[in-house]
Design a protein around this nucleic acid. Structure first.
Length: 113
DNA sequence: CACCTGACATAAT
DNA sequence: AATTATGCCAGGT
């Protein structure tokens, strides 16, 4: 089995720090987060968030895909877990269009480091 | 919309 | 230690 108890790597810590800055009622994307970190791989971001041990301290549910679809949550890309993610966002005031995408106005602009 | 390719950290071997 | 496989993706064809 993998080691779920291993301490976060430096990379993961950076991802969590950045994610923590996304305010309630707003969302960001894997790509944007990556750029804010100087990481060219949004997929790596997703992997770090997937294993986020600090939820909901670190709001990994406020990170969606670049096309503004939900992306994934807790290792799932569809199903009940995804619906939970969507519900959480709705609770925070995020609105979706008929295609199930987050409204563009809800996107958070990252502050320059 | 369905691919394909690019990018990159981690896990597994 | 080195290589391969896998993954909450993005961008282009």
């Amino acid at each position: 089995m993998s080691d779920p108890g291993r301490p976060p790597t430096e990379f993961e810590t950076r991802v969590y720090e950045a994610t923590r800055c996304v305010p309630r009622g707003k969302v960001t994307t894997y790509g944007r987060l990556g750029k804010a970190l100087g990481c060219g791989s949004s997929q790596a971001i997703g992997q770090a968030l997937r294993r986020n041990p600090f939820a909901p301290e670190v709001p990994c549910h406020r990170v969606v895909a670049g096309d503004r679809t939900l992306g994934g949550f807790a290792g799932h890309r569809e199903g009940e877990e995804l619906r939970r993610k969507r519900r959480m966002l709705e609770e925070e005031g995020i609105r979706f269009d008929k295609q199930g995408r987050v409204l563009p106005e809800c996107l958070h602009d990252f502050p320059p480091t």
